[in-house]
């Protein structure tokens, strides 16, 4: 309540109010950066050697070669796409019961814990690591890839579905409960209408992710275009590699455009 009008103004710090702490954090970040950067060993000679290869890759993008390996490319994409479709379908189908079970507002505690555990297990492991394990168990080929993608789809979708169900408008569920509806009727009349649009949205998004992943897990032998890509890169056939990458990008963009279109129509 001082009468004098303040004459100095300083911008209020954005995140951390305490001055010493702020400087300590800045200092720490700077030290870390210096240490981290200096611990990166760069072989400049190798880098220099690689430059022409980089240039060749850029050229490969300008003149992609679809023909040299077109049979491998065809089989690779066939595997990737079929894997994507089957794994997404199976994953969604299995994710729905798990997601229902993992929503605290409609499931009893034991079921909730089991379903949450499944989700945590499916999400904790990298796709690649899951693929390594499945390849070791089921042998090389797209079947292992299908299992990998289904498994990770369950974790992803069930978690989002459960969160959605926990976020629903409780009043609508209460109204349906008050009519004397059973659990299945509650799910069908109060939960499903509320979460369906987003479930479809997430499912479409997952198709997209699964396709992108299907292009990677081939590197560890789980089928798909990744194996073809790996071979092309290892042999420095950048024109073929560029062709494969361009097809991947095109399919992903197509998926995104298509799913965006469907989502707009649904909402």
């Amino acid at each position: 309540m001082s009468g004098a009008i303040a004459r100095h103004w300083r911008r209020k710090p954005l995140l951390i109010a305490s001055r010493p702490l702020r400087w300590a954090l800045y200092g720490g970040a700077l030290v870390y950066l210096a240490v981290a950067v200096s611990s990166v060993h760069v072989n400049w000679l190798r880098l220099y050697d690689g430059l022409p290869r980089g240039w060749r890759f850029v050229q490969g993008f300008l003149a992609p070669n679809f023909l040299a390996r077109w049979e491998d490319i065809l089989i690779g994409f066939q595997e990737s796409l079929t894997m994507t479709v089957t794994a997404t379908a199976v994953g969604i189908l299995l994710a729905i019961p798990v997601g229902l079970g993992a929503a605290r507002n409609i499931s009893p505690l034991p079921v909730y814990l089991v379903c949450r555990f499944i989700i945590a297990a499916a999400r904790a492991l990298q796709e690649i690591i899951v693929a390594i394990l499945f390849v070791a168990m089921f042998g090389f080929g797209p079947f292992a890839g299908f299992l990998t993608l289904s498994f990770t789809t369950i974790g992803f979708l069930a978690k989002l579905l459960a969160e959605d169900i926990e976020d629903i408008d409780e009043a609508q569920a209460e109204a349906i409960r008050a009519t004397g509806a059973g659990w299945w009727q509650l799910v069908n009349y109060a939960i499903q209408p509320q979460v369906m649009p987003r479930l479809i949205g997430i499912g479409l998004y997952r198709i997209d992710i699964n396709f992108r992943e299907s292009a990677v897990i081939g590197i560890v032998g789980a089928g798909g275009i990744g194996a073809t890509l790996n071979t092309a890169m290892e042999r420095y056939e950048y024109d073929s590699a560029a062709a494969i990458l361009m097809v991947i990008i095109a399919i992903v963009m197509l998926c995104e455009y298509g799913s965006g279109h469907i989502r707009r129509r649904l909402l």
């Binding site: 060993h41 790996n230 990008i249």
Partner: peptide, 21 residues
């Protein structure tokens, strides 16, 4: 976005050599 980091790595390893960079 379309290209997974592992594929970027695959590509970059052949260009700038294996390693952290």
């Amino acid at each position: 976005r379309s290209i997974n980091s592992l594929i970027w790595a695959l590509l970059l390893v052949t260009i700038i050599g294996p390693g952290v960079l």
